[in-house]
Design a protein around this nucleic acid. Structure first.
Lengths: 337, 337
DNA sequence: CTGAAAGCGCTTACAG
DNA sequence: CTGAAAGCGCTTACAG
């Protein structure tokens, strides 16, 4: 027989199922001797509690559902990794689903997770998600949910995000204090929220430090390697190059590296490059990329903690939005004067 | 009320629970009119089937448990991503667990998955796993299981792996046919199976092509960036440098890049570098790294397919071990003569 | 300290 | 075409 159940154990011992159930859970009702006997048999017949049955009765699954847009983006891999870790510390299992940046998949995933009666939900919406219906469903059912990294505008769920604006200002403060003043920005598109916020941070930092903003140094070309490369080449053809380029992400920074290499400019000797990113990827660069560090592990861990709080309803001092600090890591792509 | 059940629907309609259950599943027993009415109410009250209860009765969970050593290794992220994709095509859910290269976690994860009564298991064991007991447990319970990438020696479960030896021979054949003959190898340690197999491939390729194997060109230093760097520096101090270096993985190749840069050698102009790896990482290199491509998606998809076969017991023509081919991708780190 | 009763939300097999 | 009965493996609340 493939699985041994509590009933099987009860029959062997000639006691009731209840006794077995209690003994297995170390319920104070049961005598030590009985517990010993029950556990012995359980061991013998290879008893594995049927979590499904347990969940049906207990109304809790001790399971958290995770929805990410894409695992191939290593940022999310790291975030998920830390969530899984943190969850298991709290004795929760995790069910991971991937929506591949597709709103339909995302909806389907969330519905499945509801069907599995997860105790809580950790979700990072796809780039295009706009339909709030599934989330209203979640709310109606009182399922605790926390958004991380990205947010669905207009919903009052709790969320954990980075503050790119502050991150950019802090980092550029350091750069400027170090004596740099000619700083350009390879921005994403301003109609994408991260693109806009990072660019805002860039502008604020310059203003704050009394530097003029030169529109020719803000190149809004996109988020991919090729875009960074193109921006670099375009900039190279102008007479006045900046000393530092702030890239909207690491892929764009990589494009700038490729461009610099092609035209024979040395990093950091001839030009300094920095970008929003995270440490593992920064180490892949040569020289290692100076980054405004968005630590996916901090994000993941924080999101899980907030969810736990939400699930235990201990959130008396709820802060609806948790902001994760970004930290400037001065690697080797900018000379420290 | 948070959740609406079949019973709720039945009461509203004054029919039995069975009727509702059948109507919802489009059972031929039920009249179209009744189905319509049931579905209408279901929609109205926001009915979501309780998968847990369903599973308890149906004895199937339509869920596959995945165990990986580490998500921070992007190789596994990609593999998992493709598994999740492929699984959902077959209408299976996936539960992902991460063991962090720790045998204890791994054991715990597998036991949990058994407890959740997953229909099948996809596992990549940790580097140190040696205790076969959990796996014997799995076998005793007749839970279909497929090992991927790594294998636990001595168990006769099905597995899906790469063949590094063939991959190396194929790639080096191309290199040698292209006119190169002085080829070195930055190996891992030979007591680790992947290190050994890749090195064997290197040796075989040279022998096959009638080239002498120079022990001074085989540097077995480890698997990390620093090891590649050290090997490069050591090699650089000798008088005779090879034309090509085959690195045991991409991290070691990266170390070699750093070394080359430091001593002012141009890749691919002064030296060619290649390594075992996969395409996304190779693109991060500058110049892009020539790789013996271990495609994690091919691996993941194949593992899932084998598992599905195993679960459906249709494996009449079972091949116990599925080998995934590696393909040489000639990027920009080696000059094509 | 032990157990009989009832139930979680669903399905299967059978009867009408 | 519809439903009463029994059951999946467990737990809770109550009685003895």
């Amino acid at each position: 027989m493939a699985y041994c159940t509590q009933t099987d154990i009860a029959e062997k011992l000639n006691v009731s199922r209840v006794t077995v159930s209690k003994a297995l859970r170390d319920h104070p009702d049961i005598s030590p001797e009985m517990k010993r006997r029950v556990k012995e048999i359980a061991e013998e017949c290879g008893y594995t509690p049927n979590l499904i049955a347990k969940n049906l009765t207990s109304k809790r699954t001790l399971t958290i559902g995770i929805v990410v847009p894409d695992l191939e983006n290593s940022f999310f891999s790291y975030a998920v990794d830390s969530m899984v870790d943190a969850a298991s510390e709290h004795h929760y299992h995790t069910i991971l689903t991937v929506s591949r940046e597709n709103e339909q998949n995302e909806k389907y995933n969330i519905q499945s997770l509801i069907g599995m009666r997860v105790d809580g939900l950790l979700v990072c919406v796809s780039q295009r998600t706009s339909d709030p219906r599934v989330f209203e469903e979640v709310k109606k059912r009182n399922i605790p949910i926390v958004f991380f990294d990205r947010q669905l505008e207009g919903m009052d769920f709790r969320r954990v995000t980075f503050n790119d604006e502050i991150g950019a200002v802090d980092a550029l403060d350091q750069i400027i204090k170090n004596g740099y003043s000619r700083i350009g920005h390879f921005a994403g598109y301003s109609n994408v929220s991260i693109g806009r916020k990072r660019c805002d941070g860039y502008r604020k930092a310059l203003e704050k430090n009394g530097l003029k903003i030169d529109p020719a140094w803000i190149l809004a070309a996109g988020f991919e390697i090729q875009d960074g490369y193109n921006s670099f080449m375009k900039l190279y053809k102008t007479t006045k190059m900046p000393e530092i380029i702030l890239a909207v992400n690491d892929r764009v920074a990589l494009g700038a590296y490729k461009g610099a290499k092609e035209v024979g400019m040395d990093i950091p000797g001839d030009i300094g490059i920095m970008g929003f990113g995270f440490s593992e990827t920064a180490q892949m660069f040569s020289p290692t990329l100076s980054i405004i560090h968005q630590d996916p592990r901090k994000l993941g861990t924080a999101a899980l903690e907030v969810l736990i709080e939400e699930m235990q309803n201990t959130g008396r001092h709820k802060t609806r939005n948790v902001i994760i600090e970004e930290e400037f890591i001065w690697n080797n792509s900018i000379i420290k004067k």
